[in-house]
Write a protein that binds this DNA or RNA. Structure first.
Lengths: 108, 108
DNA sequence: GACACTCATAACTATATGGTTATGAGAAAT
DNA sequence: ATTTCTCATAACCATATAGTTATGAGTGTC
C-alpha cells in the first residue's frame, strides 16, 4: 500500500501535468485543489483526475478538511524508482567516481 | 545529446515492453534485435519501434554490424532521473536514516 | 432553508500510443 | 544475379489517455 510497483510510478510520472503537480507538492508543500488548479494550465476536473492517479500510485495523500481537500506529496513512494535505477546502474561499468557523482547529486 | 530531459525518460520508461527491453540490455548486455525479439512477447517491428524510442531518449545505443543491429544500454542516461528524484526528496522531512536508507538502496 | 463554494464524477471528444501485417532496404550466401 | 536473412519503415487499427463541459455531492454561510 505504501509500496507500489515501478510500473504505476513511471506511468503516473510520465505525464508532464502530473509531474508538475507532484513537483509543486514536493517543493511548496501541502496544497488545496483550488490552489493547485491556479497555476496548472488545465481545468479543475483535470487536476482532480491527475491527483486521483497520483494518489492511486501512492505519490500523494489527501486530507479532507471542511469542503476542501488538501493534497501532500508522499516522497517516500519514490523509493521503488530509486531501487529500480539502482538495479539498472549496478551493471554499468561501476567506476567509483561515477557512483560518487551519483550520490553527490542525490545529496547535493 | 548524452543528456535528456526527465520528460523523455519518464515517457520512454513508462511502457512495460520498453522497460523490459531496457532491463534486458542492462542486465544481459548488448543484444541484437532478433535476440531481443525472442523473449519479448511482441513482433519484431514493435521491438524495433520501442528501441527507436529508447534510442531517442538516449537510453540505448545501436551499432550496425553486417546485417544485424546490436543495441546496448546507456545507463548513464538515467542520471537526470536520479537528479529529479533527488530534488524531490531533498524536501521531504530530511531525517538522516531516510537518506541513509536511500543511499544504501542505491549502493546495495 | 436557500444559496454559495469546493471538489469529484459523468459523459464526451480528440489525439496519442502500442500493437499488428505488409513491405522495403541493405548485407551475406549460394 | 538471385535468394535469404535481418532489421526498419509504412499503413493501418483498437484502445488508452488527457483534456473539455456539465453536473452532482458535501460543506459552510446567510
Amino acid at each position: 500500500m505504501t509500496d507500489t510497483s515501478p510500473d504505476l510510478l513511471f506511468r503516473a510520472l510520465a505525464d508532464p501535468s502530473r509531474r508538475a503537480l507532484f513537483e509543486r507538492l514536493c517543493l511548496d508543500g501541502e496544497q488545496t485543489v483550488g490552489a493547485l488548479t491556479a497555476g496548472a494550465g488545465i481545468s479543475q476536473p483535470a487536476v482532480s483526475k491527475h491527483l486521483g492517479i497520483l494518489k492511486q500510485a501512492g505519490l500523494v495523500l489527501d486530507r479532507h478538511e471542511g469542503r476542501q481537500t488538501h493534497y501532500s506529496a508522499q516522497q517516500r513512494a519514490l523509493a521503488p524508482l530509486v531501487d529500480w535505477t539502482g538495479r539498472m546502474n549496478r551493471f554499468w561499468e561501476a567506476r567509483f567516481d561515477d557512483l560518487e557523482d551519483l550520490l553527490k547529486r542525490m545529496d547535493q
